[in-house]
Computed example of a mutant assay.
Amino acid sequence: MAVGESQLESGTESDEGVEARVGWRYTLARIADDTTARWGLYIVAVVLLVALYAFVDSNLSRLTLGAVSDYTFANAIPIFDHPTRIPDPGEGRANVPPAFHPEGTLEYPLGTDRNGRDYFTRIVYGTQVSVMVGLISTVLGLVGGTIIGAVAGYYGGAIDDVLMRAIETLYSIPPLILVIVFTVFVGGANIWYAVLGVGLAFVPVFARIIRSQVLSVREMDYIEAARAAGVRDRHIILRHVVPNSFAPVLVYATLQIGVTILIVAGLSFLGYGAQPPTPDWGQMLNTSHGYMHSNIWLSIWPGLAIVITIMGFNLFGDGLQDALDPRIDD
């Protein structure tokens, strides 16, 4: 075989090998091969499906324009009960232990709360609040931080100094304190104020990450070529700078969802998040801590739900980081 043909074939094989190691298909394959990421994905998928079910059932009146009442599925499925309705006197049993307890019953698999409401139902419907708040707050922080960090890193100079000094000032305040002050300032205890507050609290983190990436990406040859071709800065940032700086931000966002769920649960525990009778894991911990001696399971179940959900997002985030890191070989 001629030398030219040999070099051509080796070059082709090299190109195919490089092409096979980039793109979303390669990333998905890396995630599928990672046991940690796979188990994290399983947990996240189950949690999201449960949250979707709870969201649809609790908003049936809005989704069907009043044709179907809320919690229709809960009233139709034997293992569920209405998650917010307090049973009439003599109808329900308060502080019933779980089914495996000698005093428990299969009618209430996880027992009942102090008002006689089925705890399993409230744990299931509490998934909606925790996941919704975690996702929305993380997206708000991600979008705000990406905009600020990309602008600061791309332009540099005085713009960078002003934006990053403001971000560092915000970053110096503990997130929980910042969210509590924000919710009190804008109108008091409300789950949506908590969502906005948590999103605001995590803008500095995402801004710092995206800025550090943009500082290196903006010096690349293709960015210089785009500037020389007269492409507007806005298009360069949106089409070239941000997409090529987004991988570490995406990984951190996945990990941050779990942190956000924990913070919002803490807010609800302190009375600044979801308000009764809305089922929420943090609020359930708040109302159950007074029954630690008589019925410790009222605290164990919502705590376990929080731990499993956060663990799922963290496992998936770790696996996603390995899949997106080009320095880690197969």
Rank of each mutant, 00 (worst) to 15 (best):
R232H: 13
H82F: 07
T72A: 14
Y26M: 11
I263W: 07
W39C: 04
V214A: 00
Y26L: 11
S172I: 13
A247S: 14
I148N: 00
W39R: 06
G116P: 10
A229Y: 03
D33Q: 14
D118V: 02
E9T: 13
A253L: 06
D160V: 08
R117I: 12
L41Y: 06
L63N: 02
A37F: 07
G312Y: 06
G290M: 08
I310D: 00
S6P: 00
Y222E: 04
R232K: 12
R211T: 10
I177Q: 08
I77M: 11
G273F: 13
L41G: 15
V214I: 15
Y71N: 01
R85I: 14
V198F: 11
G90P: 04
D15H: 11
D221C: 08
P97R: 05
F120W: 08
T112F: 01
D221N: 14
I191R: 03
A54C: 12
A207D: 06
V179F: 10
S137C: 04
A152D: 04
D34F: 10
I236T: 03
G282K: 08
V259T: 15
V241H: 07
R93I: 15
A152C: 09
V131R: 00
D161Y: 13
A29K: 15
T35E: 09
I123Q: 00
L178G: 10
I177K: 08
F202I: 11
Y119G: 02
G23E: 06
H240F: 02
H240R: 01
D113Q: 04
G92V: 12
P78F: 04
I123T: 08
V139E: 03
F246N: 05
S10N: 13
A166K: 06
L63S: 03
L315Q: 10
Q321C: 05
R117L: 05
Q7I: 15
I77G: 03
I167R: 04
G199W: 01
S14I: 09
I296L: 14
V241P: 02
L178K: 07
M220C: 05
G290H: 11
A152I: 10
R25W: 11
N295A: 15
D161M: 14
V46G: 02
V139I: 15
F80V: 01
T287F: 15
T72G: 09
E91V: 15
G66F: 12
E13T: 12
N314S: 07
L48A: 10
V195Y: 09
V96L: 15
A228S: 14
I236A: 08
G40P: 09
R30D: 01
P109D: 00
E219S: 13
T27Y: 10
A32H: 12
A194Q: 02
Y154M: 07
A74E: 06
S268R: 13
D325L: 05
A152R: 05
V181E: 05
E13G: 04
S299T: 08
E224S: 09
N95F: 14
D70W: 08
F73T: 12
A37M: 06
I223L: 06
I136A: 07
T105H: 01
D322L: 09
S212N: 01
H240Q: 00
D88P: 03
T36H: 08
L298K: 04
V96H: 01
